[in-house]
Amino acid sequence: MLEPPLTAYALKPTPLTQPFWDAARERRLVVQHCRTCSKKFFRPEIACPHCRARDWEWVESTGKGTLYSFAVMHRAPSPAFKAPFIFAAIEMDEGWVLFSNLIGLEIEEAEIGMEVEVCFHAVSDELTVPLFRPARR
């Protein structure tokens, strides 16, 4: 059963990205929502990549998505990671995409298109990372 791979990380957030990490520490997944075109976008940007508007707000995501693609990492990129782990691209039902790790399943069970949901891994007092696991029915 795959577990959260990250054991330590010195996060260097910016004022733009801080709200995302603050929310994650409260076990909430947030995303920018454009008030002009009503679309969501990620990574954090000052201007909406869809319509260039700067009028946006952080909103809470449903946390539901599908596994768009994944790489099974048999070598840790640094000693801070426990291999093997799954590096994933998640496509959220709300139409935005992000990198994450897929946990809570065996490697062989990972499948493109499978439904996933957000969960959280507290790496340290400062850092909690949103991860994904198979969606519960």
Binding site: T17, R43, F99, N101, V129
Partner: peptide, 8 residues
């Protein structure tokens, strides 16, 4: 920022 923490 949003790639490294996942082992990119």
């Amino acid at each position: 920022e949003f790639a490294d923490v996942y082992g990119s």
